[in-house]
Structures are given as structure tokens and as C-alpha cells.
Amino acid sequence: MPTRPAVHLAIPVDDLDAARQFYGGVLGLEEGRHSDHWIDWNWHGHQLVTHAVTGDIAAQGVSEVDGHHVPVPHFGLLLQAKEFHLLAERLRTAGVEFVIDPYLRFPGRPAEQWTMFFRDPAGNALEFKAFADERQVFTR
């Protein structure tokens, strides 16, 4: 049992082998239980489940943020800065195309943060962030 609340997130994918290569190979997540239709992933202590679906995966929109077209919906994690930059390099090495390249938002301000967006092989949008001061995550 987790000592803190953990998130359970289920997402659609159209190819479990591609999901396995991306989430296990590129992102380096530990694979958990699985079947012919889904795979559980240990997503930094949270449960991420990739479910094979047939047909079209829902279309996504965008929201204008800081002059960028942010894909919506999206999901992601808050990382330490070192982990963020290591992941960005790992993604570059794997040839993952960024929707929004890693960049620093709000430099010198309380909510200073690194952020990046990319998609998995099924088109699900992911955002990873690293705050200079994690206590500022909800600062207005």
C-alpha cells in the first residue's frame, strides 16, 4: 500500500508493442501486470495503464499558453530538474519529436519551471515539468 496517495491513469493506445517500446524502452518505466489488452506501468510510484483500443483515438485540441499551442488533453509528471534534463536528452537520443521543445518558463519568478511536451506512438500528449522550487507549484 502506498504511504501517500497515488494516481491511477488509464490511456488508450492502438498498438501495445509500440506502447511497450515507448513506455518501457524510451521512458524506462518498469512494466507490471499485463494481458493481451493492457499493460500496467510503474510511473514514478503511480499506476499508468495503457489499454489497447480499436478505432480512432479521440481527437485532441490545443490551448494557447505562452505563445505555444499546448495539446489538450495531456498528462505528465513533475520531476526534479536533473531528471527533467536527463529525460529530455533520452527523448532526443531516441528520436522523439517534441510538440514543444524543453524551455524555461517564468525565469526568475516564483513559478520558474522547465517544461516540455511530446506524444507517445498513439498520439497521447505528455508534459513533463521541473520547478526551481517545488513549493511554488500552485503559486498564483
Rank of each mutant, 00 (worst) to 15 (best):
Y103D: 11
L27Y: 04
R90Q: 10
G55P: 03
R140I: 09
D133V: 10
F117I: 07
H37T: 14
E127I: 06
V70T: 08
L126H: 02
G95T: 03
G24K: 07
T93G: 00
W41C: 05
G28K: 04
S35F: 01
F106H: 15
L104R: 14
L27P: 03
T115M: 01
W38S: 06
A59R: 10
E127P: 08
F98M: 04
R20H: 14
V26C: 08
G76S: 08
V53W: 02
T54E: 14
A58K: 09
V65W: 15
I100S: 03
D66R: 13
H46L: 05
P5Y: 09
N124A: 12
R4K: 15
T139I: 09
E97H: 10
W38H: 13
I57V: 14
V96N: 01
Q60Y: 04
H68E: 11
D133I: 03
A132I: 02
G55T: 07
A18C: 05
G67H: 11
L77M: 14
A130P: 06
Q113R: 11
Q21D: 14
G61S: 12
E112P: 05
D36E: 10
E134P: 13
H34D: 04
P73H: 10
Q47E: 11
M116L: 15
Q113E: 05
G123L: 04
L79P: 01
G45T: 05
E31Y: 03
D101T: 09
A111C: 10
R4L: 15
G55C: 13
L126R: 00
Q113L: 15
I57T: 09
V137T: 15
G95M: 06
G25L: 01
F131Y: 15
Y23I: 04
E89L: 03
P12Q: 06
A6V: 15
D15C: 12
Q136P: 06
R92N: 07
G108A: 09
V96P: 00
L79Q: 13
P102K: 02
W43H: 10
A132C: 08
V7G: 04
T115H: 03
R109W: 02
R109D: 11
G28R: 03
